[in-house]
Simulated assay, not measured.
Amino acid sequence: MRILVVDDEKDVELLFRQKFRKEVKSKSLELVFAFSGQEALDILQRSNPPKVVYIFSDINMPGMTGLELLEEVKQLYPDIKISMISAYGDSDNYNRAINSGAKEFFTKPIDFVSLKEEIKGLIN
């Protein structure tokens, strides 16, 4: 299963690679990274249909925000599941994300136990 992680902070890639090391090594999970909303859309458009089945995106990014990305992806690729993350657990972002079709909403620091459960539910 291919997952796209979208975050403008590049150190997130190293963190995800560490936390999902076993899953990547066993090839049950493939991680792809984008550092902007536009880069994420470019990755999705490389194959038709996209090979990505799940997107985990930060909300607060320069340029296209995660919420704008969410709305765009839901319109273009309604079958792709998306969860959002924010450093701020404010109800405004939460409500907008869930109402726009986000599967889940996480706050930083990421609870990787909950995220792994979320992903495991997609695999089964």
Results as ranks from 00 to 15, higher is better:
residue 1 M to C: 04
residue 3 I to K: 01
residue 7 D to T: 05
residue 14 L to R: 14
residue 14 L to Y: 10
residue 14 L to G: 10
residue 17 R to A: 07
residue 18 Q to T: 12
residue 22 K to C: 07
residue 22 K to A: 14
residue 22 K to E: 15
residue 22 K to P: 07
residue 24 V to D: 01
residue 26 S to R: 14
residue 28 S to R: 15
residue 28 S to L: 12
residue 29 L to G: 05
residue 29 L to D: 01
residue 30 E to G: 03
residue 30 E to D: 09
residue 31 L to C: 13
residue 31 L to V: 08
residue 32 V to I: 13
residue 32 V to F: 03
residue 34 A to V: 02
residue 36 S to Y: 04
residue 40 A to K: 08
residue 41 L to N: 05
residue 42 D to H: 04
residue 43 I to L: 09
residue 43 I to M: 04
residue 53 V to A: 13
residue 53 V to K: 13
residue 56 F to H: 06
residue 56 F to M: 02
residue 57 S to W: 00
residue 57 S to A: 14
residue 59 I to K: 12
residue 60 N to K: 12
residue 62 P to A: 15
residue 63 G to Q: 07
residue 63 G to H: 08
residue 64 M to P: 03
residue 67 L to Q: 01
residue 69 L to I: 02
residue 70 L to R: 00
residue 72 E to W: 00
residue 72 E to P: 04
residue 73 V to E: 05
residue 73 V to D: 00
residue 74 K to N: 11
residue 74 K to T: 00
residue 75 Q to D: 14
residue 76 L to Q: 14
residue 76 L to C: 02
residue 76 L to W: 02
residue 77 Y to H: 15
residue 79 D to Q: 13
residue 80 I to V: 08
residue 80 I to D: 01
residue 81 K to S: 08
residue 81 K to I: 05
residue 82 I to T: 03
residue 82 I to H: 01
residue 83 S to R: 04
residue 84 M to W: 08
residue 86 S to I: 00
residue 87 A to D: 12
residue 87 A to Y: 08
residue 88 Y to Q: 13
residue 88 Y to C: 09
residue 92 D to R: 14
residue 92 D to A: 13
residue 93 N to M: 09
residue 93 N to W: 05
residue 93 N to D: 14
residue 94 Y to C: 05
residue 94 Y to P: 07
residue 95 N to D: 13
residue 95 N to S: 12
residue 95 N to P: 06
residue 95 N to R: 13
residue 96 R to W: 10
residue 97 A to M: 06
residue 100 S to K: 08
residue 102 A to M: 04
residue 102 A to E: 00
residue 103 K to H: 05
residue 106 F to I: 07
residue 106 F to R: 10
residue 107 T to E: 12
residue 109 P to E: 11
residue 110 I to W: 01
residue 112 F to H: 00
residue 113 V to D: 15
residue 116 K to H: 10
residue 117 E to M: 12
residue 117 E to C: 07
residue 121 G to H: 13
residue 122 L to T: 07
residue 124 N to D: 15
residue 124 N to L: 12
residue 124 N to E: 13
